[in-house]
Amino acid sequence: MKETGITNFSIFARRACCNKEIFTLDFSEYKNIISEISSTKSELKRIGNNINQIAKH
């Protein structure tokens, strides 16, 4: 379990029994992309709020 990084024994046991092989994947690149998307999303939200305020005036 330590080598795979799976902390839940139930998930580990199911994967080991069903697949007979356990793969480890590195999602660090995707975490960076997701954080960039969320920051862009918040910026777009602020811009939308500013446009709405201008439209009301």
Rank of each mutant, 00 (worst) to 15 (best):
G48T: 11
R46A: 15
E21A: 05
L44C: 07
R15P: 00
I37M: 03
S35A: 10
S42T: 14
Q53S: 15
N32R: 13
F12N: 01
L44K: 08
S39C: 06
C17A: 14
I6Y: 03
T24A: 07
E29S: 08
A16I: 07
E43V: 05
K56E: 12
R14M: 10
C18Y: 13
C17N: 14
K20W: 07
C17P: 03
E29G: 01
Q53H: 12
I47P: 01
M1C: 07
N52Y: 08
L25I: 06
N52S: 14
K31I: 11
G5K: 06
I11W: 01
K31R: 08
I51D: 00
F12C: 03
T24R: 14
Q53W: 02
K41A: 05
K31A: 08
A55L: 09
I47G: 00
E21C: 12
T4C: 09
I51Q: 02
R14L: 10
A55K: 13
K45H: 04
F27N: 03
N50Q: 13
I33C: 01
I22G: 00
N50S: 13
S10V: 12
S28P: 02
M1Q: 11
N49A: 11
T4D: 02
R14K: 15
K56N: 11
D26S: 06
S10K: 14
E29L: 06
Q53F: 11
F12H: 07
T40H: 04
A13D: 13
T24P: 00
C18N: 15
S38F: 08
R15N: 09
I54D: 03
F9H: 07
E3L: 09
K2M: 09
M1Y: 11
I22H: 01
N49M: 07
S42Q: 12
R46K: 15
I47F: 07
F9K: 14
N49C: 02
S28E: 09
F23N: 14
D26L: 00
Q53D: 09
S35E: 11
G5T: 05
I47N: 03
R14I: 05
K20M: 06
F27E: 06
E43Y: 01
I47Y: 02
A13I: 05
G5F: 04
I22A: 01
R46W: 02
I51Y: 02
T7P: 00
C17R: 15
I22W: 02
H57C: 06
K41M: 04
N19A: 10
E36F: 01
Y30T: 04
K45W: 01
H57G: 12
I34T: 04
K20F: 05
I22V: 09
I34E: 04
S10L: 08
T7K: 15
L44R: 06
R46C: 10
F9A: 05
R14Y: 12
C17H: 14
T7M: 07
R14D: 15
G48S: 13
I33Q: 10
E36Q: 13
S38E: 13
I34R: 05
I6D: 02
R46D: 15
N49G: 08
K45G: 05
H57Q: 14
S10I: 13
S39Y: 00
F27K: 01
I51M: 05
K2Q: 12
M1T: 09
